[in-house]
């Protein structure tokens, strides 16, 4: 079953973190990604640019609107994602627990809709 691990965290805290904390986090993510690859579960993933670079498109009633910023102002913002392929929810949760993002944010585990 495919699952998306959505990594939410406080963007401004992360962007203003000191050099050392940042490089530690970077190294942790590298190791985590490597572990997923070696386990053969990784199907994709990316770090996303901050919400200041986001643009949101809507078309209520057919009237298109394009606005700067994320879809909503939230306390935690989507910072990145992984797509994994594992046998069941427990396996997905096990990977989510290992994600460095849990220390300062939340990981949402979402099953992909099977077609």
């Amino acid at each position: 079953m495919e699952y998306l691990l959505l990594i939410y965290g406080n963007e401004s805290a992360m962007l203003s973190a000191p050099e050392e904390a940042s490089s530690q986090r970077h190294a942790a993510y590298m190791a985590y990604t490597e572990a997923m690859k070696k386990a053969g579960v990784l199907r994709g993933g990316n770090r996303l640019r901050p919400t200041s670079d986001a643009t949101t498109v809507r078309a209520p009633g057919g009237k298109q609107s394009v606005l700067n910023g994320p879809f909503a102002e939230t306390k935690e913002q989507l910072g990145g994602y992984y797509m994994i392929d594992v046998p069941d929810l427990d396996a997905a949760l096990a990977w989510a627990k290992r994600c460095p993002g849990t220390a300062h944010g939340s990981i949402e585990v979402r099953p992909v809709w099977q077609m």
Binding site: M1, Y3, P87, D88, L89, D90, A92, P111
Partner: peptide, 10 residues
């Protein structure tokens, strides 16, 4: 069924 909860003794 949809979230893939396993039928397993942990």
């Amino acid at each position: 069924r949809d979230a893939g909860i396993p039928f397993r003794v942990p």
